[in-house]
């Protein structure tokens, strides 16, 4: 008899296609798991509306469920509650930093953005706070591009939403 915890464990083996150091559970993409007898239902939510990785994530989840011989399963997508970077665990943030991506700040409903105030983002390589934004939009929808003024390395910043 498979438990919900078993399913969570299985899903923790599915890496995020664009940030493979994190799995889809750490990313906060998996919102719910329900097991009713033989039937397994997994609910996921997109990071961004147009995130091109969603289809791959759904297929990867289906594949891992098949591999574990789960016969009766469904993956559902919901929009609400809207995904927020606040769902990322501290461990996930540390993994991001170690891979060279500055983790998102905690404050997701950030009013400073609208008022045009500049936030201080620490360089994931040398920890310097002397950094500046090069572009609000980076290599994927969820990242912005920054540069460190001390070690001079460019880096991705995981935008908080």
């Amino acid at each position: 008899m498979i438990s919900e915890q078993d399913i969570w464990n299985i899903l923790s083996e599915v890496p995020d296609p664009e940030i493979p150091v994190l799995n889809v559970v750490e990313m906060g993409i998996v919102r719910a798991v329900s097991v009713a007898g033989p039937r397994v239902e997994v609910t996921i939510t997109p990071t961004y509306s147009g995130c091109p990785a969603m289809k791959t994530i759904e297929e990867d989840i289906l594949e891992v469920l098949r591999e574990k011989h789960i016969g009766d399963y469904e993956v559902k997508t919901v929009l609400s509650p809207a995904w927020t970077t606040d769902w990322m665990t501290d461990a996930a943030r540390e993994k991001l930093r170690q891979t060279g991506i500055a983790p998102p700040e905690r404050e997701s409903a950030d009013k400073a953005l609208l008022l045009g105030r500049v936030r201080t983002i620490a360089c994931p390589r040398c920890s310097s706070v002397h950094t500046h934004m090069i572009s609000q939009f980076g290599s994927t929808a969820c990242k912005a591009l920054y540069k460190c003024d001390d070690c001079l390395e460019p880096f991705d910043y995981f935008k908080c939403i």
Partner: peptide
């Protein structure tokens, strides 16, 4: 739900 999601992007 749609608005809550989209507003984060539009910001």
């Amino acid at each position: 739900g749609f608005a809550e999601k989209s507003i984060k992007e539009v910001r």
